[in-house]
Amino acid sequence: MRANIKDVSKAAGVSIKTVSRVINNERYVRPATRARVEEAMAALGFQPSQAARALAGGKSFQIALVCSNPGPYYLHGLIAGLRGRCAAEGVRLIVHAYEVEADELGADVLTFFRQMGFDGAILTPPIVDNEPVLDELDRAGTPYVRISPGVQPERSASVAIDNEGAARAMTRRLIALGHRRIGFVVGHRSFAVSNQRLSGYLDALREAGIPLDLSLVQQGWFDFRSGQAAAEELLALPDAPTAIFASSDDMAAGMLSVAHQRRIRVPDQLSIAGFDDTDLAKLVWPPLTTMRQPIRAMAERAAELLFSGTAEQVVLQSELIERASTAPRWG
Rank of each mutant, 00 (worst) to 15 (best):
Met1Ala: 11
Ile5Thr: 15
Lys6Cys: 04
Lys6Trp: 11
Asp7Leu: 10
Lys10Asp: 15
Ile16Arg: 13
Thr18His: 08
Thr18Ala: 09
Ser20Ala: 09
Ser20Lys: 02
Arg21Ala: 02
Arg27Gly: 15
Val29Met: 07
Pro31Ala: 06
Pro31Thr: 04
Thr33Gln: 02
Arg34Gly: 07
Ala35Thr: 14
Ala35His: 13
Arg36Pro: 05
Met41Pro: 02
Gln50Glu: 11
Arg53Met: 13
Ser60Asn: 03
Phe61Ala: 01
Val66Ala: 08
Ser68Tyr: 05
Ser68Arg: 14
Tyr73Trp: 15
Tyr74Gln: 12
Gly81Cys: 03
Ala88Phe: 00
Val95Ile: 14
Glu99Thr: 10
Asp103Val: 15
Asp108Pro: 04
Val109Asp: 03
Leu123Asp: 00
Glu131Met: 15
Leu137Arg: 03
Arg139Met: 10
Arg146Gly: 11
Gly150Val: 09
Gln152Gly: 12
Ser158Tyr: 08
Asp162Gln: 11
Asn163Leu: 02
Asn163Gly: 08
Asn163Thr: 01
Gly165Asn: 01
Ala166Glu: 02
Ala176Asn: 05
Val185Cys: 15
Val186Arg: 15
Arg189Cys: 05
Phe191Glu: 05
Leu198Tyr: 06
Asp203Ile: 09
Leu205Asp: 08
Leu205Met: 13
Ile210Gln: 14
Gly220Asn: 04
Gly220Glu: 05
Arg225Cys: 07
Arg225Ser: 08
Ser226Trp: 03
Ala229Pro: 00
Ala229Lys: 02
Ala229Thr: 06
Ala230Cys: 03
Glu232Tyr: 05
Glu233Ala: 14
Leu237Asn: 04
Asp239Tyr: 01
Pro241Leu: 03
Thr242Pro: 09
Phe245Asn: 07
Asp250Ser: 13
Leu256Phe: 08
Ser257Pro: 11
His260Lys: 13
His260Tyr: 13
Arg262Asn: 10
Gln269Trp: 03
Leu270Lys: 05
Ser271Trp: 06
Ser271Gly: 09
Ala273Ile: 00
Asp276Leu: 06
Thr278Phe: 00
Ala281Gln: 01
Pro286Lys: 03
Leu288Glu: 05
Arg296Cys: 13
Ala299Tyr: 08
Arg301Ala: 06
Leu305Gly: 09
Leu306Arg: 06
Glu312Lys: 11
Glu312Pro: 07
Glu319His: 05
Ile321Phe: 00
Glu322Asp: 10
Ala324Ser: 07
Arg329Val: 15
